[in-house]
Nucleic acid binder design. Structure first.
Length: 465
RNA sequence: GGCGUCGUGGCCAAGUGGUAAGGCAAGGGUCUGCAAAACCCUGAUCACGGGUCCGAAUCCCGUCGACGCCUCCA
């Protein structure tokens, strides 16, 4: 039984899907107006890991991630660049998809866009007006009436009375209550707009997700996810809209990831302390970012700096060490050692599942994998053959795969490998003659070229990386 | 100010009632011409102060501190 922490109840709960063995999961995507940063990567990774694990546990996951392609910032950027806003956002949608692929994140089952959901959004708003949960203002804006929703504030644990102090009304807004929020915004001159019963305009931020949820997954979903900075107001307002519209519970479980921290602060576009996914991938392997996330708790803040990244990189290397082939001199394991290895392999899967079932405890899961690595390496040191290592290494590959780690070493071409082998051969001759300075020179120079040499009493091995 | 999350060894970080997983770093050792890798060994009583309990890092109260939200935001 999987248990997960539900923001709605602030407790861990048993995971029960609406339909047996099927999961309807909606995760808030990004607003596409410039390069996505590693904070977005964290969120995408968290839900990729959750999705992979649910699939590993036998669920069919319908994973929807939206793109907000109509928005103030997109319009502002497009105006600045003299570009059509929808073309601009389309460009960044493709760009983000590439970033995610670079991070080995599985494509969502579906990626709806606001600009392609207009008829349903308008229908949704009309429905809310009919039920008196919303009202059109004279200027063509439409607002959601928060006082019409009895349990408004339940997700973020706020009460309307407590919130009014901090709220504000922009010039030109015609709200009946300060906390009312826009479902539809009347177009300003020159802005991209769509026709509606309230005149030309475009949707507010929150309504799109409610509408796309309905279109893609139906009235009720199992999991709704996103960064914890979306709890209020975005997700709170989504609940208000959807539940007021359908009269049913919207999402059973709400999962929120913590924020990536850069220098003690949340990384965000508005703070400007940004490292883009592209910049990251130019310097480090995708596995490093994933390991950074895996080593922590998805709900907690995640420290992103050279120190934590270096450690993550070393951790990835360590996992890879378990996949190395048998020693050159491997002559087979003694019976006792073979059964020790078998015992760890047998318990690994069970332990892995048991910790992951507990609210996706990836840090615990990684610890299980390190135990497996240690057992494999110990067996190799004791003379295990490739054959004897196989089932353990298969297990390691399977479980790291569930977490989305690739553990690929750098590859050379068969051409370059020939030359490396030649150099190793020459070096071995040099070593026989005990010409150590020359031998070490070859090793050092190859290291600079990305080839690591390891000598043992039984021979020399090498690898890229 | 309000609401929320959290405070575990040098760093990252599991564990949420029965005497503290794992990774990184550091030190010692085996192996090695040297190195690297791998393996073995070495370290914390869990922010602080009260309380509940036979027993608490784990529950309750308080203090201090950090972060997030309350405005766009993964």
């Amino acid at each position: 039984m999987i248990r997960l922490y539900n923001t709605l109840t602030r407790k861990k709960e048993d995971f029960q899907t609406i339909e047996p063995n099927k999961v309807r999961m909606y995760v808030c995507g990004v607003t596409v107006y410039n390069d996505a940063h590693v904070g977005h990567a964290m969120s995408a990774l968290v839900f990729d890991i959750i999705r992979r694990y649910l699939e590993y546990r036998g669920y069919t996951v319908r994973h929807v991630m939206n793109y907000t392609d109509v928005d103030d910032k997109i319009i502002a950027r497009a105006n600045k660049l003299g570009e059509d806003p929808l073309k601009l956002s389309q460009r960044y949608i493709e760009d983000y998809a590439r970033d995610l692929a670079g991070l080995n994140i599985l494509p969502a089952t579906s990626n709806p866009q606001v600009s392609k959901t207009m008829p349903l959004i308008i229908k949704f708003i009309e429905g809310l007006i009919q039920k008196e949960h919303a009202y059109a203002a004279e200027n063509g804006d439409v607002y959601f009436r928060v006082t019409s929703d009895d349990d408004y504030g339940k997700l973020s644990a706020r009460k309307l009375d407590d919130m009014q102090a901090g709220s504000r009304i922009e010039v030109g807004e015609q709200k009946q209550h300060p906390m009312d929020f826009a479902l539809w915004k009347a177009a300003k001159p020159g802005e991209i707009s769509w026709d509606s019963p309230w005149g030309k305009g475009r949707p507010g931020w929150h309504i799109e997700c409610s509408a796309m949820n309905l279109a893609e997954l139906g009235e009720q979903i199992d999991i709704h996810g996103g960064g914890n900075d979306l709890i209020f107001p975005h997700h709170e307002n989504e609940i208000a809209q959807s539940e007021s519209f359908t009269g049913k519970q919207f999402s059973r479980y709400w999962i929120h990831n913590g924020m990536l921290q850069l220098g003690g602060e949340k990384m965000s576009k508005s703070l400007g302390n940004i490292i883009s996914i592209k910049e990251f991938l130019a310097k480090r392997d995708a596995d490093v970012m994933r390991m950074l996330v895996l080593n922590g708790t998805y709900r907690a803040p995640l420290l992103f700096n050279d120190e934590t990244l270096d450690a993550a990189e070393k951790s990835v290397d360590r996992l890879k060490s378990g996949l190395r082939p048998a020693a050159v001199s491997a002559s087979g394991l003694a019976a006792g050692s073979a059964s020790e290895l078998a015992a760890v392999v047998n318990s690994a899967k069970e332990n892995f599942t048991s910790v992951m079932d507990d609210d996706f405890n990836t840090a615990g899961a990684v610890a299980v994998l390190f135990e497996l690595v240690k057992a494999i390496n110990t067996a190799r040191d004791k003379g295990a053959t490739d054959d004897e290592l196989k089932s353990a290494q298969d297990q390691l590959r399977e479980l790291t795969g569930v977490l989305g780690l690739r553990l690929q070493g750098r590859q050379g071409s068969s051409e370059t490998d020939k030359f490396v082998n030649l150099l190793i051969e020459v070096r071995n001759e040099v070593r026989k003659q005990k010409l150590w300075p020359l031998s070490d020179l070859i090793r050092d120079r190859l290291k600079e070229l990305g080839v690591t040499i390891e000598d043992s009493k039984d021979g020399t091995t090498w690898r890229w990386g």
